[in-house]
Amino acid sequence: MLSFTKVFQRARWFVCCLSLAMTAWVSAAADRIDTPSLLSSRASEGLLLDIAKAGDRLVVVGDYGRVLVSDDQGADWTQIQTPVSVLLTSVYFSDARHGWAAGHDGVVIHTADGGDSWIRQLDGRQLNQLQLDTYQALVDAGGDSKTADLSLEDLELFLDDAMVAVEEGPTQPILDIYFINNQKGFVLGAYGLLLKTEDGGSSWVVLSHHVPNPDRFHLNALLVDKKVVNQQVAGQQTLIIAAEAGLLFRSDDQGESWVALDSPYEGSFFGLSSYQDQVLALGLRGHLFASQDHGDSWQQVALTRSASISGAATYNDEIMLVGQGGLVLHGRSLAQLKAFDVQDRRAWSSVVRVKDGWVLVGEKGIKRITDKVLEASYE
């Protein structure tokens, strides 16, 4: 049996090693924030997590701060240097020129020229200080008038977490970014993070405590319900968030307040999409749910594959779903989705429609699937 002295020595050694590891981790995060991405001839073959349209241009983001653009429908790609080396998880363009990408270590970068150049707007150090300042001010004020149901004790817990985050360093991941227009947008991510900007990302407001998410589950995706937007009712845009543990949230006031929706299952949701006046929630192990009433009720869509779904894109009446294990489903209705065999098991994270087909991105880079190849596979 180990003596108390030896147990103490081993415990102290473990704590020392853990401290050194945390110091190295925080230092690495700071380095990634301050180090521009490296240009590589193989950038299009690495881990890429999201793809967006900037007018006729395609923009892809991924590991090591990589951004790639294509002006020929995804046939050829050019890497653009960015000011960071973090894993970029999400990219969104509000028009052909104005775009944002976000990722690990609390990073948000912005372009105003269609992706030709990028500046850093936010990083994990600024994010940690913003959360600390926000919750310190709310606790000092005795509460938040916009969240009357949230107790001072709950706000103190947010403050405690913010203090710990400042000590640990800039490590909080942002998992999704969405802009309603060139000025108004949101970022969301790990541990219930939700921020809002009204000035194109120059400044941010913390809204994490506005979401009824006491266990601080990760917020994975945000979507504006296009059916509501098309009604053009000022101030009535419906926002929906998909999260871990089957959580779904909705806001009808530009993200200032949120309600939890009744969820159709307990597994995590990884994405949201719009299709034929429906909102789709993409989940684990082939779980796909559709709502026609802004999330009040959900109907499960039966699929022939059980892989987790990561992304979706639509074009007129067509839809393509992509996910883990090489999952690619395509069809002209949710009831008639067919599996496309991509000849490998690589995971796909996102997809967009182009003029002659679809462009997918994932763990091993970029793949184009033309309409001709797609239709031939069904014959």
Results as ranks from 00 to 15, higher is better:
residue 143 G to Q: 13
residue 143 G to H: 13
residue 143 G to A: 10
residue 143 G to K: 13
residue 143 G to W: 05
residue 144 D to R: 05
residue 144 D to C: 02
residue 145 S to Q: 12
residue 145 S to R: 03
residue 146 K to T: 14
residue 146 K to H: 12
residue 146 K to P: 00
residue 146 K to E: 15
residue 147 T to I: 12
residue 147 T to F: 10
residue 147 T to R: 14
residue 148 A to V: 10
residue 148 A to R: 12
residue 148 A to G: 01
residue 149 D to Y: 06
residue 149 D to N: 15
residue 149 D to Q: 14
residue 150 L to T: 15
residue 150 L to S: 07
residue 150 L to Y: 01
residue 150 L to M: 14
residue 151 S to H: 10
residue 151 S to Q: 05
residue 151 S to G: 06
residue 151 S to P: 09
residue 152 L to F: 08
residue 152 L to C: 13
residue 152 L to N: 11
residue 153 E to S: 13
residue 154 D to N: 13
residue 154 D to C: 10
residue 155 L to M: 05
residue 155 L to Q: 02
residue 155 L to N: 03
residue 155 L to D: 03
residue 156 E to F: 13
residue 157 L to D: 12
residue 157 L to H: 12
residue 157 L to E: 09
residue 158 F to A: 05
residue 158 F to M: 15
residue 158 F to W: 15
residue 158 F to Q: 11
residue 159 L to Y: 08
residue 159 L to K: 09
residue 159 L to H: 06
residue 159 L to N: 03
residue 159 L to R: 05
residue 159 L to Q: 08
residue 160 D to T: 08
residue 160 D to G: 08
residue 160 D to M: 11
residue 160 D to A: 08
residue 161 D to I: 00
residue 161 D to F: 11
residue 161 D to W: 11
residue 161 D to N: 12
residue 161 D to M: 07
residue 162 A to S: 15
residue 162 A to W: 00
residue 162 A to D: 00
residue 163 M to A: 04
residue 163 M to E: 15
residue 163 M to Y: 00
residue 163 M to D: 14
residue 163 M to S: 07
residue 163 M to V: 07
residue 164 V to Q: 09
residue 164 V to E: 12
residue 164 V to L: 12
residue 165 A to K: 03
residue 165 A to F: 06
residue 165 A to G: 04
residue 165 A to T: 04
residue 166 V to F: 04
residue 166 V to I: 10
residue 166 V to Q: 06
residue 166 V to R: 05
residue 167 E to Q: 13
residue 167 E to V: 14
residue 167 E to S: 14
residue 167 E to F: 09
residue 167 E to T: 10
residue 167 E to M: 10
residue 167 E to W: 10
residue 168 E to A: 15
residue 168 E to R: 15
residue 169 G to I: 00
residue 169 G to T: 05
residue 169 G to A: 00
residue 169 G to E: 02
residue 170 P to E: 04
residue 170 P to F: 07
residue 170 P to H: 03
residue 170 P to I: 07
residue 171 T to V: 15
residue 171 T to L: 15
residue 171 T to E: 11
residue 171 T to Q: 14
residue 172 Q to A: 02
residue 172 Q to K: 13
residue 172 Q to V: 03
residue 172 Q to G: 01
residue 172 Q to F: 04
residue 173 P to M: 00
residue 173 P to Y: 06
residue 173 P to N: 11
residue 173 P to Q: 06
residue 173 P to H: 07
residue 173 P to I: 08
residue 174 I to G: 02
residue 175 L to N: 02
residue 175 L to S: 00
residue 176 D to V: 02
residue 176 D to Q: 02
residue 177 I to F: 00
residue 177 I to W: 00
residue 177 I to A: 01
residue 177 I to Q: 01
residue 178 Y to G: 00
residue 178 Y to F: 11
residue 178 Y to A: 01
residue 178 Y to R: 03
residue 179 F to I: 09
residue 179 F to A: 09
residue 180 I to V: 15
residue 180 I to E: 11
residue 180 I to K: 03
residue 180 I to M: 08
residue 180 I to T: 09
residue 181 N to M: 04
residue 181 N to D: 15
residue 181 N to C: 04
residue 181 N to S: 09
residue 181 N to A: 01
residue 181 N to Y: 03
residue 182 N to D: 07
residue 182 N to Y: 00
residue 182 N to T: 09
